[in-house]
Design a protein around this nucleic acid. Structure first.
Lengths: 340, 340
DNA sequence: CTGTTAGCGCCTTCAA
DNA sequence: TTGAAGGCGCTAACAG
């Protein structure tokens, strides 16, 4: 009667003295709908508990063609410094919906992407999340459209799949707001210029910054072009400073640029925040490590991941849905206090 | 004959004019073993290709009790800045072995851990990898022993499960080697002291450092205790410097400490590497962002993840196997060039 | 060398 | 309100 090994549904049923049908209904919470006696319900549940019954998901999948699993394909999200937090968010949200997340990285290889999608499809994943480390416009990989999917941190040109993105424009406005709040009305510069043509963040942040400043009658005094990493930023800012400009505030398009700017400003003898306000984007841990700590408009990675899962699992999500998530301000000490 | 919908094995078989048995053997590369005619083999493979047949993994799992899937449970690896690279390594290695990785984070909650393990077991994962962000000694969570498992970046007290770890002692020796190579024979200090009692890295690094220095007749001049993060390190180092010491070289037990030390040294007017050599551990991207770039003994995260998967999948792995991976030196510009 | 047959554990239509 | 029965797609004895 009890082999002490992996109870099956029929074990439970016979122990409860009902048929597997009844047991199945009960365990799938359809007893009400099926008008099953409270007594049978009770007995089955007890039997299941006593045998510590766990349904065999493979058998379930075979039958139902659903696996309780979500495939998360990314270019290199796990490799990235911060983007991996999207995995955290996705995985937690998935669990809340009784799902597990299986991951795969393409490293930008479309063939690999297609293979991963195929492998996951073979395993009956209930849906896909396709994520990119950098907010960008992408080409939907082969096979993704065959299964319900949502894009995470990216969009496709045709806007044909639901997507979750950070609200970069609003983020830009937030950054501008901070600068304005500190009382700067002149010599506000932007540092950075995204070299990746598919990247969306730079231009959108820029757009938000300019718009908000304009509302206050402030114009961007200039833009210092530089790649999005520390050394190029350092060099660009330093030579720019040496050319004789004297900024009041610099808005760096990401935190690494800000680090480069910090170093350049220090080399040039300009104090942050005393002489120059620095505001940035991303809200990476780097921001809190610097001294003075950096005020940064942060990317809500965890929330992005979670939102993607929820959109995916919500049957009401229209295929052209685009959700933009707020970029919260991570306040630091790099903003000049209002003079008084 | 062809409904253009998801070909099954029997579709393939009938199209090739053989039984499903034969088709199954062939597609599982057992035709040799079963001495199946080259002709049948050929026909079946062609049919499969023509129908773009893909086996239904749920059905396979139901039969074979194996899913081609590995469960990777961690405390907060994906959330971490660098540890997430273990996922990259694991996932890539898994793919090479025709497996996929499903992830779950426990956030240190043993109940959650047990639940995740249960969920994954239900889905027939072929094995578990239990990973921690920080190298440490752990208590094996409930349910992990029932399935083949390996520990990643951690060990259990009883050494009862195979484990993969960075070779911290050797790493410590490497750091010392660098310092010695720069000609320092005196005033070599170590900065850091791990507050986490379960963490292994600190003491082991320390051990390697002391041992290697001792071999060269050099003694550690002192240890500056501090937590493993930027601000505490900054404060500790600064007040230490102000107490009048004048280090030749400082070995920081991780990169964040090194960042704090950089800032403190700068504040104190000591130039790196001109006046002080700084060497560190972790090899995070931070190391390359600093100026001068930081020489750091790096944690081989990607390799750790990959090695864990390979140990897991290798039936020859004994249950008390412990693999220690080399920590490669990430050379930077923070080491004083030999005076001449 | 290849086909027949019997499940793996579960869901679900159909009858009772 | 419950039970019998079939089948999801695949593998693996066991015959031929």
């Amino acid at each position: 009667m009890s082999a002490h090994r992996k109870a099956t549904l029929s074990d439970v049923a016979s122990r409860a003295g009902v048929s597997t049908t009844t047991a199945s209904y009960i365990l799938n919470n359809r007893s009400a709908q099926m008008r099953i006696s409270a007594d049978a319900d009770e007995r089955v549940r007890r039997a299941a508990a006593e045998l510590s019954y766990r349904p065999n998901r493979s058998a379930q999948s075979l039958r139902t063609r659903r696996s309780g699993t979500i495939g998360l394909i990314s270019d290199s999200v796990a490799s990235g410094q911060y983007g991996s937090r999207m995995l955290t968010g996705a995985s937690a949200a998935a669990r809340a919906l009784d799902h597990l997340v299986v991951i795969g990285e393409t490293e930008g290889d479309p063939v690999l992407a297609a293979q991963l999608i195929e492998e996951m499809t073979d395993r009956q994943v209930d849906g896909f999340i396709y994520a990119t480390l950098v907010t960008s416009e992408v080409i939907i990989p082969e096979g993704l459209r065959e299964t319900r999917s949502v894009l995470l941190n990216c969009v496709d040109r045709e806007r044909t799949l639901p997507a979750v993105l950070p609200d970069e424009v609003a983020g830009g406005r937030t950054a501008a707001e901070v600068v304005l709040g500190a009382g700067h009305t002149t010599d506000v510069y932007v540092i950075g210029h995204d070299p990746n043509p598919h990247a969306l963040a730079g231009p959108l942040r820029m757009e938000g910054v300019t718009a908000r400043l304009a509302e206050a009658g402030v114009e961007v005094a200039g833009v210092v072009p530089t790649g999005w990493s520390v050394l190029p930023a350092y060099e660009a800012v330093l030579s720019w400073l040496r050319s004789g400009v004297r900024p009041e505030a610099v808005i760096c398009l990401n935190d690494r640029i800000a680090l480069g700017a910090y170093e350049a400003l220090a080399d040039h003898g300009l104090a942050v925040p005393g002489e120059v306000t620095v505001v940035s984007f991303d809200g990476s841990t780097l921001a809190s490590w610097l001294r003075p700590s950096l005020t940064s408009v942060s990317l809500p990675y965890v929330e992005l991941g979670a939102a993607a899962v929820r959109m995916l699992m919500d049957p009401a999500t229209p295929s052209d849905a685009i959700e933009r998530l707020k970029m919260p301000l991570l306040a630091g000490d790099s903003v000049r206090p209002i003079a008084r």
